[in-house]
Amino acid sequence: MTNQTRREFLGSAGRWAVLGLGVGPVLSALTSGCSNAGSLSTLASNAGSVMKVSKAVSKSFQDITPEQEYYIGRTVGAMVLDKYKPYNNQKAITYLNVMGQTLAQASDMPETFGGYHFLLLDSEEINAFAAPGGLIFITRGMVRCCTYEDSMAAVLAHEIGHVQHKHGLQAIKKSRLTSALTTIGAEGAKAFGGETLSKLTQTFEDSITDITSTMINNGYSRSFEREADRAAVTILKRVGYDPNGLVDMLRVMEQKLKPGGSDFAKTHPSPASRIEDIQKSIGEYAEVKTPKARKKRFKRTLQNV
């Protein structure tokens, strides 16, 4: 899979989504009875509701419940991990999770359905991904752009910003949301087969592909990146990290990014333009103020990554 191209990855991801999602609701109908005995008896009567539901109120990404966001995020995360291998360095993973969860608590959305969790990816690429709900992935290449713990914190805070603003979910095309969140929004949908099921499957497949292709292949809009940078600055200030860490990381990244690369060079606005935007809120760059102890533990934990 490591040699698989992005297009192949996304294409196959889409096919898996079709297979899994197509059969999912059927199995769901069969198994949910164990824990939800009452609902099976109402499936037939729910069928009528589902049709009405699909014509009901106009829905947006905000109507995706945290529970659904969680399951979407898990699958998106699994797809990221199908493309990138995890970097199994327990010390580094623990360090990132303590830091990341501390930062998440200072965000505007500290609580998600399944919580925030962080993982390193064994890749030289400069990249980071935030799956909906709070699963965050950072490549080793990205770690190497961080000279300070404050910079590492800035990377995590930026990704938390994407989760907080639900940028992943917003990648789902609005045209799909009406059918996805209304038809699927009914328990009775589990009873359907045939045409309705295939429609649901298609909608789910498309929604997940929307997220992975935006997140991994095309990147978010400049305004989303700006929003995530603003959230990062706020979180860093609240926790007590130097927001210049974000600028420092972007400066290093600018030197390391290869033009035409498939990582941040492709999916993010240029570091220079991001720095320009960030400096509007934090002022001119000043060297990162980081105490010796913080510098030492950062080096100790991540220098060999």
Binding site: T65, A186, E187
Partner: peptide
């Protein structure tokens, strides 16, 4: 449990 749930996964 609507939509993309544990059983679907």
């Amino acid at each position: 449990g609507k939509g993309f749930n544990e059983q679907v996964e």
